[in-house]
């Protein structure tokens, strides 16, 4: 479904990604783990077009998206939940969700579609319905993360990019979020997940990639990586 082929990106003179090649198949949960600065978030930003790769190709369902601007990539069915949630703090929860459906607005029978999208995310996170009229910025961290994920789902993505959804959240909320990720996946959305919380992420994922210094160090089945001595030592602290 998604294929990255030898992607290089730069922040000024610094090469952040030094040739990333990875593949995500339809219906999978794939996770990227690695230390701070390994290039996990950068990889997601390259996919969603926020950062243009200097070299390499990204293809999504058969077409090359490496040169597309972010908004066309969203229209093709990739939704990105950026790191640190980035909800709109001074818009209400409902307005945040409506903004998430921005690309839906140009399609036909949008009202019906919007309503079913709202029902879907409210069913997944009932707390958002309760908070519908509240400003996004007044929500707790966990609720903001739920809102950020819901907002990304409003555009009916085929592929969801999640950047550290567990960042700064209490363990009980983290498990709630991870459960939701699983639910979303079961409904047919392919997921590419970036996580610091390597243990939980690998448990959830079918496959995983380990990044180090802008390169892919190893990849394999989630369970396999969990049991690998190297991963254990470097990321699981065992």
């Amino acid at each position: 479904m998604l294929e990255l082929n030898d992607i290089h990106t730069f922040y000024g003179p610094i090469e952040a990604l030094k040739g990333i090649t990875l593949k995500v198949n339809q219906g999978e949960i794939v996770c990227l783990i690695g230390n701070n600065g390994a290039g996990k978030s950068t990889t997601l930003m390259a996919i969603s077009g926020i950062l243009k790769p200097k070299a390499g190709t990204i293809s999504f369902i058969g077409s090359d998206i490496s040169d597309m601007p972010p908004h066309s990539i969203v229209e093709r069915g990739i939704s990105h939940v950026p790191e640190g949630r980035r909800i709109f703090p001074r818009l209400t929860v409902k307005e945040n969700l409506e903004m998430g459906a921005y690309t839906v607005g140009s399609r036909t029978n949008k009202n019906k579609k919007l309503k079913s999208q709202f029902d879907k995310v409210y069913e997944m996170f009932p707390v958002l319905r309760e908070r519908e009229r509240q400003m996004g910025g007044t929500l707790s961290g966990g609720e903001q993360q739920m809102l950020a994920i819901s907002r990304a789902l409003m555009s009916e993505p085929k592929l969801l990019l999640l950047d550290e959804p567990s960042l700064g959240l209490a363990p009980i909320i983290v498990s709630r979020i991870f459960k939701a990720i699983q639910e979303i996946n079961q409904e047919g959305v392919t997921i590419l997940l970036v996580e610091q919380n390597a243990h939980a992420a690998l448990n959830l994922s079918g496959r995983g990639y380990v990044l180090e210094n802008g390169r892919i160090k190893m990849h394999g089945q989630g369970k396999e990586l969990l049991n690998s001595e190297e991963v254990k030592k470097a990321y699981l602290g065992e």
């Binding site: 969603s48 077009g49 926020i50 601007p69 972010p70 908004h71 969203v74 229209e75 939704s79 990105h80 939940v81 950026p82 980035r86 909800i87 709109f88 703090p89 001074r90 818009l91 307005e95 409506e98 903004m99 998430g100 921005y102 690309t103 607005g105 907002r151 990304a152 409003m154 555009s155």
Partner: peptide, 25 residues
């Protein structure tokens, strides 16, 4: 309108706006 909403979204958070499909430029 849609345009006004996009403006407000850009004001609130530009990266988030482009990640939900607003052509910020």
């Amino acid at each position: 309108s849609r345009i006004g909403r996009a403006w407000i979204a850009i004001r609130e958070d530009e990266i988030a706006s482009s990640s939900i499909g607003i052509n910020t430029t």
